[in-house]
Design a binder for these strands. Sequence first.
DNA 1: CGGCATCCTTAGGGATACTG
DNA 2: CAGTATCCCTAAGGATGCCG
Lengths: 169, 169
Amino acid sequence: MVVMSHAIHMAGRLDPRSGWSAERCTIAKTLGVVSTRSAFLILREAFYGTTRFDDFALRAGISEPVAAQRLRELVDQGLLEREDYREPGQRTRQRYLLTEKGADLFPALAALMQWGDRWLDERGGPVQLRHAGCGEPVHVELRCAAGHRVSVDELELVARAESGSRRRG
Amino acid sequence: MVVMSHAIHMAGRLDPRSGWSAERCTIAKTLGVVSTRSAFLILREAFYGTTRFDDFALRAGISEPVAAQRLRELVDQGLLEREDYREPGQRTRQRYLLTEKGADLFPALAALMQWGDRWLDERGGPVQLRHAGCGEPVHVELRCAAGHRVSVDELELVARAESGSRRRG
DNA sequence: CGGCATCCTTAGGGATACTG
DNA sequence: CAGTATCCCTAAGGATGCCG
């Protein structure tokens, strides 16, 4: 009998019934910043090197109004930075560049891609990530600070701080 | 001048303008399976050990109709499995369990959480993942098959297969 | 080129009430 | 407990056209 085989082990008195999983959950917070399909696709394009408005709309396959709104939101949230620039002999253009905050979201994108490669594409996905120079394929994984690869069943969830603490009062 | 510092390097003739990034993109395909906030939150709860309908709705903080619809979709997509079970002396109940396919999405959830911990919570997030036994904190990372840690700027993107090939024709 | 305005349709999602 | 039915509102997103 395989029961809840994939759920994470709760350490100590971490009880989902207390509501901790919803209140300050940073997955939920992150989804508050990027939850729409169009936002993810725009970020994908940013990682692929797209910088200009029209290209975002075209390559992400979304309409211009939606592109405009998402880009604005992503800039407001600090994931993209909008910048005027001018190449010699050209007129001024605008471009959107990933900030550190935006770039730091890449592992999430890579994880979604990796899952799709495995479960939704019979050929393992159209593109592959490689380690430049080394040339080896790159994957997303869980690893602990001691350097061990960690599988889902080896995970333990612990609370980081008291919910109602005011120790600095 | 830091230009496009966070974009991925394209190897060979991989041109975003050709549309390859949209056609078979497995990020987009994955978002076709889970893109809504409620779907992510339900999966979160599944990893946290939730198995019953009411608990999913309550702990994910979503209404019952939405929970019903998402659970149905996730079961249809093979991420969750619905099962009737009965404890001795109790009546028959239903529960939802993560399949291998569903469990394999955990790195994506963990990556979203890790990003939120870093960028959206001043205390680094309410909960922490640890390597059971070892006790060390667990993080999501990119690593190549040769074992090197890989940062975003060390990434290279290559095509895996010809788009129009019919070599077995 | 880099948008915004307008209009429209569909999807996401809450509230409430009801059923087996 | 495990949902369904109904109603309603908002957000997501496409299409078209216009503007500096």
